[in-house]
């Protein structure tokens, strides 16, 4: 409380007040609730037809704005690489005693690890049909590995293997895009595979492939991040 009442606090409040007022004056003009967004409307109307994916979010993420998705994959990749690079080069390593995990955690880890993996895989393989997708699936897989580190001390992800999967799936994504450029009407990341039947697992062209690659990549990346952070704290 004393902090807020100080001069600095007052200045901060004042600045924030102006900024909030400014932003709200802009927000106030946005016509919420009305289908004003031309682009959004078109996605709703044509999405299914254009992309063959019943999950419209997927059709936007992997179709209309696939380049953003590729970009986000890169962002995650950079973050993971950067983290491990900084952690690897920084010299300060604190030696700490590690306590063994409890029996419950150990047992639970063994049972749940494959199940979580499976669920993660489901999320990204099925991403074009039901809610879910590559990022979500990958995050779930990453959590499975976190569990392993918590429960089964001593077991580790092979950094090389994780790196290889990460690398290959990322390359695969770009490669798919380049194939689209080559095969499908000279557009990068165009959906050049047949759309197939609606609601089938193998449908919507390259979307499932993209999601699988993203899922693998994100999963291995999270695993790698967890690994490098554990490595750091050891």
């Amino acid at each position: 409380m004393r902090d807020i009442l100080s001069f600095r606090g007052f200045v901060a409040l004042f600045l924030l007040g102006i900024i909030v007022a400014g932003i709200s004056s802009a927000v106030g003009q946005i016509p919420f609730g009305q289908p004003d967004s031309e682009v959004g409307q078109l996605y709703l109307e044509n999405g299914l037809q254009d992309t063959g994916a019943p999950n419209l979010v997927t059709s936007v993420v992997a179709g209309y704005r696939a380049l953003d998705t590729l970009g986000e994959v890169v962002v995650l990749f950079v973050a993971a690489t950067g983290l491990s690079a900084v952690l690897a080069t920084s010299k300060r390593r604190v030696e700490r005693e590690l306590e063994d995990a409890s029996l419950v955690l150990k047992t639970g880890c063994r049972i749940f690890f494959p199940l979580i993996l499976l669920f993660g895989a489901y999320l990204f393989i099925h991403g074009h049909l039901t809610p879910g997708g590559g990022f979500q699936g990958g995050a779930v897989i990453g959590s499975a590995f976190l569990l392993v580190y918590l429960g089964c001390s001593g077991r580790r992800v092979s950094a090389d293997a994780a790196g290889a999967i990460e690398s290959l799936s990322g390359f695969g994504f770009v490669f798919l895009g380049l194939l689209g450029l080559l095969v499908g009407g000279s557009y990068f990341l165009s959906n050049f595979l047949p759309k197939g039947d609606l609601y089938e697992l193998i449908s919507a062209g390259i979307f499932p492939l993209i999601y699988i690659l993203i899922g693998l990549k994100v999963g291995s990346e999270f695993a790698g991040i967890v690994d490098s952070m554990i490595e750091e704290s050891k």
């Binding site: 690489t81 690398s167 450029l181």
Partner: peptide, 22 residues
């Protein structure tokens, strides 16, 4: 040259670096 290649090629190569390192 498609301008998309200016992004695709370096990205693909960047992804490949960890693999190539091995």
């Amino acid at each position: 040259v498609n301008p998309a290649l200016l992004l695709a090629v370096p990205l693909a190569l960047a992804f490949l670096i960890p693999l190539v390192r091995l």
